[in-house]
Simulated assay, not measured.
Amino acid sequence: MNRKAIRRSPVLTRGPVLEREEYIEQAHLFELLFEQGGGAFPIQELLQQLRDEVLATTRLVMAIDYLLTEIKHSGLLGPAMHQLSHYFTPFQTYLIDQSESDTGRFLMSTAFQVLHSEAKYRLQDCSPVGLFLYQFEVLCRSRLTYDRGLTAISGDPLYDNQWSQWILGLRAQIGLVDFADLLFLSSEYYRDQLLASKQSTEGKGPFLLDAKTGRIAFANRRKDPTFLFGALQRHMGYPAVPRPKPVDDSKEVLSRMSRRIERLESRIQLMEEERRATLDITKFYEKQ
């Protein structure tokens, strides 16, 4: 009997949707860590300062206490956020884990900036469509792994079971099917086309995306994905994803040029001394 291995979706602990004041204080937390985290103030001191600033009636105060305890022992935020899965979403924890990884290029300042924009977006009319597009664009622009990233996204409390299963199903399709096609085939715009042509919708869908998203995806098929993300961000109203800044190697280039100029000057000086027959080669002898 042939046994086929069945790939099971990982089970994530999905916390509840937090109250509005929690996201207000989270936005303040990540904003301060983004603005001053890479400066002269260590994260431990910033968390201690935020411990006294945030609203005392929110659960963020207890979360900061736990983060402070963990960072004093291990120097990392990720392990503590894993233990606080009832408060922080899996996507928030995933970004912090990637920023603290020794082998990754995802900067912690970028993670704080992304989380600050996401917390502010949740204070507005945040829809599952806009939140998913924002989180997925973060994975693309930051070059994070789709498998672990989509798994973390699927555990967000804003998504219901149908949304979570659809996001988990994307892990096997990303890279094989154009992302614009995946959005179009899961939109109400595609469903309306099937119904208009009197075709059956059985076995297709789920049609989770609205018709406007489907039209934008259909118009950007076989194009550069940056055009798709740009159009979606303009029309859906979710925050702009921070783009990785190119490495400024101008200082290194100037130092290499200065060293090369010094070597050229030394060679020219030796050539002039040799031409005038004043070159003293004894100065190059090894001193005993």
Rank of each mutant, 00 (worst) to 15 (best):
L12V: 10
L12A: 07
T13E: 14
T13A: 12
G15L: 06
G15C: 12
G15H: 08
P16R: 12
P16Q: 08
V17D: 05
V17F: 03
L18N: 08
L18M: 13
L18K: 10
E19C: 02
R20H: 10
E21H: 14
E21V: 14
E22V: 02
E22R: 03
I24A: 10
E25L: 09
Q26L: 15
A27K: 13
L29W: 04
L29K: 05
L29R: 07
F30R: 00
L32C: 04
L33T: 07
L33V: 09
F34P: 00
F34E: 14
F34H: 15
E35P: 00
E35K: 14
G37E: 06
G37Y: 06
G38A: 08
G39T: 12
G39K: 08
I43A: 01
Q44M: 01
Q44Y: 02
E45F: 05
L46F: 09
L47P: 00
L47V: 03
L47K: 02
Q48V: 01
Q49H: 03
Q49I: 02
L50D: 01
L50V: 05
R51C: 00
R51H: 10
D52C: 05
E53K: 07
L55S: 11
L55W: 03
T57V: 13
T57Y: 08
T58Y: 04
R59D: 11
V61S: 11
V61Y: 11
V61D: 12
M62H: 06
I64P: 07
Y66L: 03
Y66M: 06
Y66H: 12
L67H: 08
L67C: 02
L67D: 03
